[in-house]
Computed example of a mutant assay.
Amino acid sequence: MTATAAQPPAASGDAEAHAHVPVLLDRCMDLLAPALAERPGAVVVDATLGMGGHSEALLTRFPRARLIGLDRDPEALARSRRRLAPFGDRFTAVHAVYDELPAVLARLGIPRIDGILFDLGVSSLQLDEADRGFAYARDAPLDMRMDPTRGITAAEVLNTYPADDLSRILREYGEERFARKIAATIVRERAREPFRDSARLVDLVRDAIPAATRRTGGNPAKRTFQALRIEVNQELTVLERALPAALAALAVGGRIVVLSYHSLEDRMTKRALAAGAASKAPPDLPVVPDALQPTFTLLTRASEGATEAETAENPRAASARLRAAERVREDS
């Protein structure tokens, strides 16, 4: 039976958080429901807490569940704590990156979890705060750190990386066709004056790309900004560690849901879930013993996207890709 507890009141001063529309919310709730609805004391992890929209829905729909919310961004944690305060001790916020999940669970004394949700990429909070430097549409300091208390900034990457490394980052993380030309231009221009603010970088990228290419595909700087953000926050390296850790933490019947926003994240997620759902037996073995059976089953055979109605309500959902899996047995 699905729980239908009433929505708790919004904490004062956080109206902007409640205006935020979580991506693919209903689909995420439905996929996680079998792991949470019938288990008193079920533990679910929101690995990317952000503004707390998915977490609020989880705590509301599953009133017997406990939720652990992770985020590397101190401002996101502060806002989510205020937003989710009505849920009391059912909600625990932790300042951590999601690849730190095993250490977080050990510290909290939680051996296994029943569900975990990843909503990857940059959060609405980070995009909407101009001084964070994530949005190429507004001039701001080139920071791009999801946790502004540690790590290198985008300006440091631009001003110190060799041209070959800049080109690789733009090509691999931004899938930028003109990566080498943009990188060479950055190196030339930083010798004249170090990069500090985003507007100069946007202009540089636009000028480095052929005019015919600039006429389609939106702002030509978006791929460069994506690549820098991924490098600054080591997003793919973190995800590569986090997915196996999340799968290992799930109890039998536990479910994982991953929302990704570009092909690199989605491919990495697809590989991790497919590996868990694959038999460990040789392909010609006539009978597969239990010890070699898959430990996971895929709940989505291909990545799922947002509906037209969802995209109309929340344009940021347009690039979302959802994948999910359920643990069906313990590892042998």
Rank of each mutant, 00 (worst) to 15 (best):
G52D: 10
H54I: 03
S55R: 06
S55C: 12
S55K: 08
L58R: 06
T60I: 04
T60M: 02
F62E: 08
P63C: 13
L70I: 01
D71A: 02
D71W: 01
R72W: 10
D73A: 05
A76W: 03
A76G: 11
A76P: 10
A76N: 12
A78R: 15
R79G: 12
R79M: 12
R81K: 14
R82V: 07
L84S: 08
A85Q: 15
A85L: 13
P86L: 04
F87W: 09
G88M: 01
R90M: 01
F91R: 08
T92A: 11
A93T: 01
H95Y: 01
A96G: 10
V97T: 14
E100W: 04
E100C: 09
L101I: 05
P102W: 02
A103E: 15
V104R: 02
V104Y: 02
L105K: 04
R107T: 14
L108I: 04
G109E: 13
I110F: 05
P111A: 15
R112P: 12
D114Y: 13
G115I: 12
L117R: 03
L117V: 03
L117H: 03
F118T: 10
V122Y: 06
S123D: 06
S123A: 04
L125M: 13
L125Q: 11
Q126S: 07
Q126K: 01
L127Y: 07
D128S: 11
E129R: 15
E129D: 14
A130G: 13
D131H: 15
F134S: 09
Y136R: 08
Y136V: 02
R138Y: 13
D139A: 11
A140P: 13
P141M: 08
L142C: 10
L142E: 07
D143H: 07
D143M: 00
D143T: 08
M146F: 00
D147L: 02
D147W: 00
P148R: 00
T149E: 14
R150H: 10
R150M: 08
I152M: 14
T153P: 11
T153K: 04
A155S: 11
V157F: 11
